[in-house]
């Protein structure tokens, strides 16, 4: 037998596709797929909201509290006063399907949130930073606005959507790109909800005090004062940028002809 030397044939075992083409196809394609799924799931949540009324929700979650919540003492004066303020504001929302409950979270990070069943949680950090009742009233009115638009359920839906993505791609750091694409899509939706909640909250504050003075003073302070940087970052992660937000609120107050100057009520603690 005769040995004939031959060069090895190349390209049989290796695809022709350029690695960068392969990479961009996968990244763009997957980001698009994740964003589409996220939008589709938002519509599913909307559909669920249509079938479950706010009354059903209030019955279902009437005395529910998150397990990991650490509250202040139940005889705390601030808890009593905040609950009173919420009740006063809610009285300007005729036919509200919820009985609002206030809890104060032990956390030093300023934030406020609306949870299913009419539960409003404000953090100690927020109470330490507000300087007048009017400032606090707006934050609470904003949360009431979330209940009115039922954004708190949407937020819950978004949380579920994101954790589903995490479950699918667990242990695959590459797919984090897809999760971020979904997150950004969802955040775009939530900004509009924040603006609507601001407008509703402003309306409640106006009905209660006859003016909207100091409603956005807390945000103006955060905008200028860099010392509470950590608070700002945390608050921003769940709320729109403060600069745009103040401008939007001023525009809305002007449109509705709500006075922006008035008597300021001191905090009662």
């Amino acid at each position: 037998m005769r040995f004939v030397a031959k060069r090895q044939k190349e390209g049989v075992n290796v695809s022709d596709t350029h690695p960068l083409v392969e990479a961009s196809t996968l990244i763009v394609g997957l980001a698009a797929i994740f964003a589409i799924i996220a939008v589709a799931l938002i519509f599913v949540v909307e559909l669920a909201l249509y079938f479950v009324s706010a009354e059903d929700e209030a019955n279902l979650f009437g005395d529910w509290l998150p397990d990991d919540l650490i509250t202040v003492a139940p005889n705390d004066e601030r808890l009593y006063q905040t609950q009173l303020l919420v009740d006063r504001l809610a009285s300007h929302w005729p036919g509200a399907p919820y009985t609002f409950r206030v809890e104060i979270d032990d956390s030093e990070i300023a934030n406020a949130m609306a949870l299913p069943g009419g539960l409003i949680i404000v953090t100690q950090g927020l109470l330490n930073q507000v300087e007048s009742e009017n400032e606090l009233a707006f934050v609470l009115g904003h949360e009431l606005g979330h209940f009115r638009n039922r954004d708190h359920i949407r937020a819950l839906g978004r949380g579920i959507v994101l954790s589903m993505f995490f479950a699918v791609v667990t242990g695959n750091d590459a797919a984090g790109i897809g999760i971020k694409a979904a997150d950004i899509t969802l955040r775009g939706f939530s900004r509009r909800q924040e603006t609507r909640a601001d407008e509703f909250g402003l309306g409640l504050v106006h009905s209660e005090y006859g003016h909207v003075d100091e409603s956005w003073r807390l945000f103006e302070r955060w905008n200028i004062d860099g010392s509470s940087f950590l608070d700002l970052v945390t608050y921003l992660s769940t709320h729109p940028e403060t600069g745009d937000r103040i401008a939007d609120m001023k525009r809305h107050a002007e449109l509705e002809r709500w006075p922006v100057d008035g008597e300021i009520t001191d905090l009662s603690w």
């Binding site: 690695p19 392969e22 996968l26 997957l30 590459a174 897809g178």
Partner: peptide
């Protein structure tokens, strides 16, 4: 590794 990880989500030839 990253591109192969993305490929692993939908299947197909791991060209990289």
């Amino acid at each position: 590794r990253v591109i192969a990880g993305l490929r692993g989500l939908i299947g197909g030839r791991i060209k990289t």
